[in-house]
Design a protein around this nucleic acid. Structure first.
Lengths: 256, 256
DNA sequence: AAAGTCGTTCTCACTGAGTGAGAACATTTT
DNA sequence: AAAATGTTCTCACTCAGTGAGAACGACTTT
């Protein structure tokens, strides 16, 4: 008879996960009350779960009384996609040594690119991407490379949606983008200029393993240095090859 | 009357967390049956939870049918200790640029050091530490720095336990270690030689924020180059100072 | 200093969500 | 083809989870 607000049929597990989910896209520290609001759960339920998560190490109570995601989650997360990250990382570092430009490694998660690794120093700070961050597929070079690997029906469906335009120069016209994706498929690389941020240019190539694109490797630098793309292409290509070779290597067992 | 095997009183949440915990220290991919065994849960219960976790994105079913930790956990984990990692990372990279030696950033978690960041290229591969990995506090330079920050009662209790000796040269005598910890407190840095791996040397300094050691910054290189410690000390110190300065900076708000 | 606001902690009677043995089936190994 | 191992799912039982609300603490406002 009362309002049917409560998300009925929610399992205990899903509630606990909602509590964790409340931290996604948050500032990092949340009070129990705020967690409850974000997770759409009653206060007492939230309270109980927060404490169980805290005891396990999934959440951590800061000195200000607010909760943060705990290191146990961080440690667990290190297990996700470890093969790719571990194998690729040393070569990203090599590429950075060579170029001293921002180096990215991203995978596709749904309709976004997820940045799984990134090399940068204190010299190059203003960045849009961050490790663990997501960006749309059509506005970065890595994103387009990842999109280009998808079947036509996926690409078409993606382009049919309302596309974000982070800069005035961002291409959002489905017809032009279809064309551009075709170019990426033909050339095996993507170059985007000022699509995600003004004065930024990015180049990317796919990392192929077992016949499918598992990630995209990219370089980002200032747009006015567009002539240097030529110089970086062979280095980017070489790095991708080394990563692909390393991916194929022996399984490198450990524990259990 | 039957065997009291079941861990009675286990809450649903704790069971779900056990499922996740089953992946800790695993090879990365586990069958449902193996998860059940490791988590000490009945098969049907495990099955149900694995599926709920999978639906949420916490677990991912591989092409071989085995489960792995999913990227959603990885993403969530990026929120843990982000302030430290984000602020420190660029300077670790700078230090690597300068030295081209392995650079580590570790925090203390219980009686171990947890490696939260690390810079290395393909040149320096044989390593014991890994991002997300743990090592004992007494056998590395970062570990000793972290231990030295603890009160005497903690140090004493730590040293009283059976201490691992990864190499023949590892110091495990509590009396000598107490002495060494005293040195670290006095000098503000730690140097360890072949304590964790033969032919490896490590130097570390504490990163202090709000009057307490929040992490330890370390360099690792070949033991026979011990003379170079002199050369690296100022660079290590300078990097720590920059990190500490950056930690104090404006809060850098984002979302919510 | 009193009232108001916001957050935390905890209790308790009620009930429906979670349970797990076991059956049926699929896949791989011997 | 027999055995071993793993997956998926059902169902009757009951115990763990529930959430309104009370009590309290720490602030800001008036």
């Amino acid at each position: 008879m009362a309002e049917p607000e409560q998300i009925r049929g929610a399992s205990v597990t899903s509630r606990a996960l909602s509590v964790l989910g409340a931290f996604e896209g948050s500032s990092g520290s949340l009070t129990v009350a705020r967690i409850a609001a974000r997770a759409q759960l009653p206060l007492s339920t939230t309270y109980r779960m927060v404490h169980e998560l805290e005891e396990w190490g999934g959440l951590r109570k800061g000195s200000d009384g607010k909760y943060q995601v705990g290191f146990r989650i961080w440690e667990l997360g290190q297990l996700a996609g470890r093969r790719l990250r571990d194998r690729a990382h040393p070569f990203l570092q090599d590429l950075f040594d060579l170029t001293h430009e921002n180096v990215h490694l991203a995978i596709r998660e749904g309709t976004q690119s997820l940045y799984v690794d990134k090399i940068y120093s204190s010299r190059k700070m203003p960045q849009v991407s961050r490790i663990g961050g997501r960006l749309p597929l059509h506005a970065t070079a890595v994103g387009r490379v990842l999109l280009a690997d998808q079947p036509d029906w996926f690409v078409d469906a993606y382009l049919q949606r309302e596309l974000e335009a982070p800069t005035p120069k961002t291409v959002t016209d489905p017809r032009i983008l279809t064309q551009l994706i075709g170019d990426v498929r033909r050339d095996g690389y993507s170059v985007t200029i000022e699509q995600m941020r003004m004065n930024a240019l990015s180049v990317a190539r796919p990392v192929v393993f077992n016949g499918q694109t598992v990630a995209a490797l990219g370089l980002v630098f200032e747009a006015h240095r567009y002539r240097e793309v030529q110089r970086f292409m062979p280095q980017l290509r070489g790095t991708v090859e080394r990563i692909e070779f390393a991916m194929a290597g022996r399984p490198l067992t450990m524990g259990e």
